[in-house]
Design a protein around this nucleic acid. Sequence first.
DNA 1: AAGACCTATGCAAGCGGCTGCTCAAATGGA
DNA 2: TCCATTTGAGCAGCCGCTTGCATAGGTCTT
Lengths: 345, 345
Amino acid sequence: MDVTIKDVAKAAGVAPSTVSRVIADNPRISPATKRKVKRAMEEMGYHPNVTARNLASRKTKALGVVLPFSADKALQNPFFPEVLRGISSIAHDMDYSLVLCTGETDEEMLEGVQRMVYSSQTDGILLLYSQVRDPIQSFLLEQKFPFVVVGRPAESGSEVTHVDNDNIQASKDITSHLLDIGHERVAFIGGSRELVVTLDRLQGYERALQQAGISSSESYKVHTEFLKSGGRSAVRELMSLSEPPTGLVVADDLMAIGVISTLEEAGIHVPEDLSIVSFNNVYLAQVSRPALTTVDVHIHDLGKEAAACLIAHVQRRDQPAKRVIIPHKIEYRSSAISRPAPSEV
Amino acid sequence: MDVTIKDVAKAAGVAPSTVSRVIADNPRISPATKRKVKRAMEEMGYHPNVTARNLASRKTKALGVVLPFSADKALQNPFFPEVLRGISSIAHDMDYSLVLCTGETDEEMLEGVQRMVYSSQTDGILLLYSQVRDPIQSFLLEQKFPFVVVGRPAESGSEVTHVDNDNIQASKDITSHLLDIGHERVAFIGGSRELVVTLDRLQGYERALQQAGISSSESYKVHTEFLKSGGRSAVRELMSLSEPPTGLVVADDLMAIGVISTLEEAGIHVPEDLSIVSFNNVYLAQVSRPALTTVDVHIHDLGKEAAACLIAHVQRRDQPAKRVIIPHKIEYRSSAISRPAPSEV
DNA sequence: AAGACCTATGCAAGCGGCTGCTCAAATGGA
DNA sequence: TCCATTTGAGCAGCCGCTTGCATAGGTCTT
């Protein structure tokens, strides 16, 4: 708490600069001196002061993590903790610390980001979501501040490094699965249209239909908030169509759980009456009933990769923007079953 | 990114110290000068460098947040994000930043905490869980480093400021509820015995039984990991007793969901065959089927209060340790129903 | 043996902002 | 009008560490 580099220097009989170089493991210091200094540090319980170090070296060894709290991006979604875990593991390995930035509204978050950037609190920033026309992305871009986004940037995609799944393909895959096992009327329930991930998954769904030669109907595509039970009305509407779907592609596990709940209330059983597939494969997906057939997007890897990219990027600023795609994998469980051949009414 | 206090000073035709005092809104600077300086800051896009400021003022305006990743404390539990939200809202208001510290193991976390403390990265630390014989708490205590824990410290409770629910009372309340609606055989499923919260809830359960004049049986108290499906075997064991319980007090919502799933697999229906109550009232509790009767512990308030306490504490170090109890409230939903009067066999 | 070169350290100037102290100007009182 | 006060602002040292440059020995060359 108190012993400084000077104290150590004095005790070891060397100059402060030497101690500093010992800390940095500078090859220009002889092994003998290093040992001597290290012993002194040990004995005195010396620990370098990061603040001073940061000031002198004009770096922070800290990454900013921006995660949304607003209702529809929903921090209660286990997606965030999980990606955080991935980020943290890399940050820890590379000796970076993480500073959190959140807010209930876009403005609050932007404010937070600006603070981080202007006051040089972090070397780079990680965006854990991607929405269209994101003022934060614009700001960061314009400031030329290093950042990487988890997800696909809606704009300037080629200029910003991002780590994502191929959500279009993933969605196409899982929709096709539903089609393959006999469903002909498959609807899509997505979250906020502002989120790129929703858009991508919707597009994948549409492509799958198209490939199967099924025309897609607007009434089969509904959007509702990630978590809000507002989903209820959307589901009811969907099921009261003259030709209700027999299969549902839901853009998120948690949403799927909410949807299933609503369905059951209405006396519709999953998967007997209706098959459901979703995305993310959070822990709950295997514990809820029925266990969810879902796309495992390897959340943890998304986080790890994003952190690694960002660190690489802040260490060598000249790196070009890159795009990393984390593979996905469908987990087949019990929320989707094959549809008996339709009876010709 | 570049303009410093000196540049502003020059532009405004004053000394750097004057600019500094303007920033601090020091009353010794005349309004006229303040205006002048502020205009200059504005025009030049000046933003103080926190690092330099921190170094000079020997504060960081940052709070460390320690949250566990290990399996049984489970970050996937929405409890953490939610308390984080509470913390964040206060931190934001008070202009503090949050730095995250996590780890998969206790050692990793201790390491992280030590780093924070030794290198003075934060002014104070928030512990989001409490376990018995916690090396982190001991360390912090011994270093006299300001910290507050969310939960009840197992040891030295009177010396460390903490924010908690009255979990014993809460557990007693909800267990009594089960008893009141006619259940006579009520079992308890808790998480890790290392966690104080588990211990408290167990104790509340026991007290309720005792007060109702029911003797508690060891086979009715089981512990399993917070999330792991390992819970399965525990549940099966419980249900294969010669006198299986008709009511279950589960120490956590997520666990309850897992338990219900296991039960249903075994053909036992909740709440018809078995009533379940749990704790926390996370978002899922109202969305899952059946919706959970659970104790709302006001997670968000826990976080807010904890952050407020910590900030108060770092600002005036001489404050005595205090204990804040957040009230709880039972949410009656559909996972617990009254037990028909037992038939006299 | 003397200059050329290393090697291992030390010196000192920052990094950007804070703050105790000093000092000049302005104000007020008599 | 003159001196005591108050007010406003500047000076300079410091926070703890990093780093370019200088330097003192020592080792090689030739």
